[in-house]
């Protein structure tokens, strides 16, 4: 139809084409953004497409929230901290140099923010041990109630032990053991040489072993 119009009324055909593009943007906007890679999404954002940032948040929110929760060991703190991470990402996305993966870059920001919060008196307030939603308990759904309770207790004990570690060892334990990041990634995120990462991890595990004596 547009081809027919194009021959007869080229102006109207042009307008219809641009209008159809506009409609496609509204209806299929989210889908279009989902097709983009991280780098493409960042470039689109830097070119002024603000809605693409929501897609970036959607992609990395769980990773960031998990890291924040594992480091802060508090649900509300993790929620606030994760939001702050994405606000900082929004502000500094223009500084992203495409030298590393976007996830690594965001991870770095998240980790630095968590470390800053740990250093301040922010954590001194009363802890909120909010129970996570039932849907999050994927790993415990096949366990008996007794096993589930036992596992929760062990998890709490390990988390409390990790919390008692020095901040530099704690972050590395979280990244390696809880988040499952490789030594190479950890070195990239923290800016610490790989050998130092390994030695600090060994020291941290030794500390955990003494703290968890009788539990594991």
């Amino acid at each position: 139809m547009i081809n027919v119009l194009n021959n007869i009324f080229p102006h109207i055909a042009d307008k219809m084409r641009s209008f159809s593009d506009f409609l496609r943007l509204i209806i299929c906007g989210r889908e279009r953004y989902r097709e983009l890679t991280d780098e493409e999404a960042v470039r689109a954002f830097l070119q002024g497409e603000q809605p693409v940032f929501n897609e970036i948040v959607e992609r990395h929110k769980d990773m960031v929230f998990s890291l924040c929760y594992n480091i802060m060991n508090d649900y509300d703190d993790a929620h606030d901290c994760a939001q702050d991470v994405f606000i900082r990402v929004h502000d500094r996305l223009c500084d992203f140099g495409f030298r590393s993966a976007l996830s690594t870059w965001i991870y770095k920001i998240a980790m630095n923010l968590c470390r800053d919060r740990l250093k301040t008196s922010y954590r001194k307030r009363v802890r909120n041990f909010a129970v996570p939603e039932e849907s999050d308990r994927i790993s415990s759904q096949y366990l008996t109630p007794h096993e589930s309770i036992e596992r929760d207790e062990t998890e709490n004990a390990i988390r409390c032990a990790i919390e008692q570690l020095p901040e530099n060892e704690r972050v590395l334990i979280v990244l390696r053991d809880l988040e499952g990041r490789s030594y190479d990634e950890i070195a990239g995120i923290t800016g610490i040489p790989e050998g130092t990462v390994k030695s600090r991890l060994a020291r941290g595990r030794k500390g955990l072993r003494s703290l968890l004596k009788g539990v594991i």
Binding site: K61, D62, F65, S66, Y69, N70, Y75, A78, P132, D136, R137, I138, S139, S140, R151, T154, E155, I158, D177, L178, I216
Partner: peptide, 9 residues
Amino acid sequence: EVKGFKRHN
């Protein structure tokens, strides 16, 4: 134990 930790999304 750590492998079985609940993931908080």
